[in-house]
Design a protein around this nucleic acid. Structure first.
Lengths: 198, 198
DNA sequence: ATACATAACTTACCATTGGTAAGTAAAGGG
DNA sequence: CCCTTTACTTACCAATGGTAAGTTATGTAT
């Protein structure tokens, strides 16, 4: 009972800190301080940082999936579906690059934690969500391997966010703006048949 | 004279540590210890970790560019060029995911350093390399914006590496293997016209 | 020769970070 | 009344990125 409440408070506090103070400020110490509890109280609920990040990942992934599937709802045609998916997922991540980094980059830069019950539970939560997202997109594709293509298209959008984030963090402006790159990606993924501004 | 030698030794040591002990072991302390110098000697040449990473980035990027342009040499046709580029860059990164992380992920997870002469010099070194790589690919494309498409294709490959690395670090096997995803990406990027195994 | 500057370091120190160890107050069950 | 479990706390630790200040060697202008 209080179990769900405290761990949810921790997750919410972590999200707040990320939004207000950025990536580097999300530490056990800052979370605990802002919550008015000891650091070990946080570590009690999330024994490693990987566990904390994994728990933050799930709601974000759900939001990403919902943005994607809502964009796909009512769309007809392969090219239009690809364009809608790419634009929705790109907007989701470009709007909050720190969240993108926390989802996809930070977990890979920490030393891998030993798998435990918590991480196993998180992985079980993740798979249905990605399945839904990839199925929704694959339903609009007609290649030989629509599922793999859906994953590849998703990865392509993540790659755009990766490049944009790299440019941002190095203070090196993207020579071609984000919007142009999104259009170009859509043009390539659809074979140039979609209504992309020329 | 000794200037180039010491900083090059530091970079080489850092690469060695990355290859032998992994991402988490690349610290000022471990580099200094292995070099037999003090940590501050390393910090003298690279005042922040961002500076060190930026300096490591450049030779790696050159290698990536060479892998890509060599794969493109002698290739005829848009689809074949895209396939060759994607396979070359994907192989480059999948072969060494820790290097990929060090190049594209870690810099974004550190707090941004204040720009200095060193970082400015590095950025000047980077631009010609990426220009070459994107030009080489764009020359084979015939869309309205070949340059942007080249960047987008590159980003798409980086995204595949990102997903593969995430799966690896979470010990969550990619449901579709790396090779299948590369094939699927090529199929989508080329409009399915290339000789991708079905 | 002397004063000074610069390069290439060293030793000493520091706050923050993720994490371990051990203890404790409260609550419920046999 | 004991015993376990839950939900913490205080105390501590090694490693990390980084600052501050001092040292040694070398070259350079006076």
């Amino acid at each position: 009972m209080s179990k769900a409440r405290t761990s949810d408070q921790i997750l919410q506090t972590a999200r707040d800190i990320l939004a207000t103070e950025g990536l580097g400020a999300v530490s056990f110490d800052t979370i605990a301080r802002r919550l008015g509890r000891s650091k070990q109280a946080v570590l009690y609920w999330f024994p490693t940082k990987q566990d904390l990040l994994a728990a933050m990942f799930v709601p974000w992934l759900v939001a990403e999936e919902q943005a994607a599937t809502q964009a796909l709802a009512g769309v007809r045609g392969r090219a239009a579906a690809i364009a809608a998916f790419v634009r929705a997922v790109a907007a989701f991540h470009f709007d909050d690059l720190d969240r993108f980094r926390m989802m996809y980059l930070v977990p890979q830069t920490l030393k891998p934690a030993a798998p435990n019950r918590q991480s196993a539970a998180v992985l079980e939560q993740v798979h249905p969500v990605t399945d839904r997202m990839y199925s929704a997109l694959a339903a609009h594709l007609n290649g030989a391997h629509p599922r793999q293509e859906a994953v590849a298209i998703h990865a392509a959008v993540l790659g755009l966010a990766l490049l944009a984030g790299l440019a941002q963090s190095l203070r090196d402006p993207l020579k071609h703006g984000e919007a142009e790159l999104i259009d170009a990606l859509i043009a390539r993924l659809t074979g140039g048949e979609s209504g992309v501004p020329g």
